[in-house]
Amino acid sequence: MSKVHVTTSVNGDEVEFLADPRETLLDCLRDHIGLTGSKEGCGTGDCGACSVTLDGTLVCSCLVLGVEADGKRVETIEGMADGAELHPLQRKFIEHAALQCGFCTPGILVAAKKLLETNPNPTEEEVRYWLAGNLCRCTGYDKIIRAVMDAAAELRQEAA
């Protein structure tokens, strides 16, 4: 199948690649532009390990075709820190031991960041339901929820 030329912005940088029309955005990120921070846990939209934002919308990049990213803005885990300065969510995840194997972590961080942009003061229940599409098999979610709530509190303080 002949390849399609795709021009897109990834974490603020302009990126071009050739995509087979059957390839997912996740495959393109990982295999064509070397951003392997987004993970494939299922390929069917059930685990959230591949979470990215596309023009600001949280998506499973395994369910989006690479060619669909043409002309759009993609944000991935690799763009979450501001240079050397971690996003408060990233810091809180380390501080709260909210990761064990760390494989779910990039997707959960991307999803949680979107949550806090949407709702800066979520209840525990709201965090649990927002992250219900992000599987973690290691932690039982306890420390993840705590880390997200704590990061939210810190961000609110900064904003105040």
Binding site: T36, A81, L86, T105
Partner: peptide, 23 residues
């Protein structure tokens, strides 16, 4: 005590390399 884990930074930034992350 509960210090930060040494591999924490790699794992929250997407830098850590898992099975499928190498070519």
């Amino acid at each position: 005590t509960r210090p930060d884990r040494p591999d924490g930074l790699d794992k929250v930034t997407g830098r850590a390399r898992y099975g499928a992350d190498i070519s």
